[in-house]
């Protein structure tokens, strides 16, 4: 059903920034504030698109390439994950690898763009980002391998609709992927998107020097990343039928994504940021959960 998968991509493109709004609303609710409007992320992106840019004298072409390559990468990732049981346009055996690695490419260039500014703060953020993502990668791939073994498929579009949430191993994978999700998207307890001290940031500090349309691409890219990685978790948790009622499962999956955003908001409201040296431990824990799940599936 190619039309359905194209509609799915369009939905992702349209609704991704809404996730940020939901997270922020949830946090505002817990803090007893009104909070920013639900559509604030859209407004931010539009505002940035309208502005001119300022480049640091230190930077080179790499700095300008970073946001562009980042956005293009996450768009490819968007074409790989299925939504609500509908196969993605770029679905093939092994697509989960290009999914993981294209996000790696996005990170590679974000980090290079950060180093290109020559700022020690951005270097600091970059240094943390590469370590944490290197530890998150095995957790993600082993978790997906467990799902692959459970469903005897190597394509996200076949794996995710076929998996049932009821077995304990799938619960373990889900928890592991949730940890990876929070880490990859720079949320609490890994990184605080609202912090004001450059010294303690991870993701936010790396994009300090970007402005105008470049920054809009980055904002939009991270919203999409929140969307695509969320879809993997939702795909595991939510059953999906790809019959003629595909739009129902699509709607329920999107509802699930919004629910995930609420959970992220709750986590952010109730937890504090971890100390930086604790973060690797949490990621190793996620990896162990994935591996344990895989061993359970093996039996």
């Amino acid at each position: 059903m190619p039309i359905a998968s194209i509609i799915n991509i369009c939905l992702g493109l349209l609704l991704a920034p809404l996730l940020l709004g939901i997270i922020n609303k949830t946090k505002a609710f817990f803090a007893g504030r009104t909070g920013q409007p639900l559509f604030q992320a859209y407004l931010d992106i539009i505002k940035q698109l309208r502005k001119g840019v300022v480049y640091s004298q230190t930077t080179s072409l790499i700095f300008r390439a970073g946001p562009v390559i980042g956005l293009a990468s996450v768009l490819i990732a968007l074409a790989i994950v299925p939504l609500g049981g509908v196969a993605a346009p770029l679905a093939f055996s092994g697509d989960l690898l290009i999914f993981a690695y294209i996000l790696g490419l996005m990170r590679f260039f974000t980090v290079l763009a950060a180093l290109d500014t020559g700022s020690s703060f951005e270097g600091m953020g970059a240094s943390r980002e590469v370590l944490f993502s290197a530890l998150a990668e095995p957790a993600l791939l082993i978790g997906l391998a467990a799902i692959a073994r459970e469903t005897h498929a190597m394509s996200l579009s076949q794996m995710l609709p076929a998996v049932s949430f009821l077995s304990p191993e799938v619960v373990l994978v889900t928890v592991a992927l949730l940890i990876v999700y929070l880490c990859e998207n720079a949320r609490i307890p890994f990184d605080d998107p609202n912090t004001h001290l450059e010294l303690t940031m991870i993701h936010e500090v790396m994009v300090l020097d970007h402005s105008g349309p470049d920054f809009a691409f980055i904002l939009y890219g991270s919203a999409l990343k929140l969307w695509v990685l969320g879809l993997v978790i939702i795909g595991i948790v939510f059953p999906a039928s790809s019959g003629s009622f595909w739009f129902i499962s699509v709607i329920s999956a999107i509802g699930g994504l919004f629910f995930l955003a609420v959970i992220v908001g709750i986590i952010e409201s109730t937890m504090a940021r971890l100390r930086l040296i604790r973060i690797p431990q949490l990621l190793v824990a996620a990896g162990s959960l994935s591996l344990f799940a895989f061993i359970l599936v093996l039996r």
């Binding site: 690797p280 431990q281 190793v284 824990a285 162990s288 591996l291 344990f292």
Partner: peptide, 8 residues
Amino acid sequence: IMSVIAGL
């Protein structure tokens, strides 16, 4: 961390 890896 090494302990957890050993545990695995």
